[in-house]
Design a protein around this nucleic acid. Sequence first.
DNA 1: GACTGTAGTTCGTAGTGCAAACTATCGTCA
DNA 2: TGACGATAGTTTGCACTACGAACTACAGTC
Lengths: 147, 147
Amino acid sequence: MEDTKLATALVRLAHLVTRVYAEVSKEFELTPQQIQLLCMLLGGSTGMTEMSRALGLEKSSMTGLVDRAERRGVVVRVRDQRDRRACGIELTEQGREIAHDAHRKVTARVEGLIGEIDPGDRERLESVLVGIVRAPHVGRDLPQVAL
Amino acid sequence: MEDTKLATALVRLAHLVTRVYAEVSKEFELTPQQIQLLCMLLGGSTGMTEMSRALGLEKSSMTGLVDRAERRGVVVRVRDQRDRRACGIELTEQGREIAHDAHRKVTARVEGLIGEIDPGDRERLESVLVGIVRAPHVGRDLPQVAL
DNA sequence: GACTGTAGTTCGTAGTGCAAACTATCGTCA
DNA sequence: TGACGATAGTTTGCACTACGAACTACAGTC
């Protein structure tokens, strides 16, 4: 009988946030994965391999993801001059706008989920969560500008 | 410049939990959706429509999900005697075991993520999170035995 | 210049999720 | 009783996600 209530609440909360994410994505007629890609790119453009590590995907999965995002005009592949095998993924103007808007909307709605809470509780929650999210075994492969 | 740090941390947490969920699912050679279905059924068997509402899916999506779960021998469809259109979804013995194990593993690993925190903080957090997860605009369509 | 490693892509497969159209049954009301 | 609208599930076609294995093309090295 471990103390499992907190973990359970966190899991449920995560599911909730995932739904918010999905709903916001739909507003832009993009998938959550595509939106995540865009938000990640706000932290700067990267190559396919690096991005696939950041997203926790096989690189073969990246190809399709970027293909579809490119078809929608939100990113472009830019051939690397020094290494002609590699290419960078970059946001288009439209992609950047969407990324910002989506980021704003998601955080706003998640704030809405949280609702009114005691400022002290908020701070405590914040520090605990930031601690979790920054944990070493976690951070390695984790996004910089996640969302 | 709203206070967005907490929301951002929550979004990242959601992504983390999603990964944990995916990793645990893989240990059972099932998909996260299938595991979620099983965990939900721990709260009692239901019909397709009710479950689709609980999972936030169209009922047409449920058909396939249950088909595949049934093929893997973790659930069965049981024709309703009173209403011959309807059918209940029930866990098989194997399904129930997997559901319990997966539930345990997920909560254990999420507990691991949380790490050491002050017992007072823990209680505080618990009550805050439970409050959020139970919020009215949320609970309506939400799982009972979520995870 | 051959060799090994790395960056991305291609292909086949399984699964997710939707919307629209459909089947079968239920409950009601005339 | 028999027509009718509502409800429970299924089917179909589509777009997307994700994987692993095999592949192409280039890079760096010995």
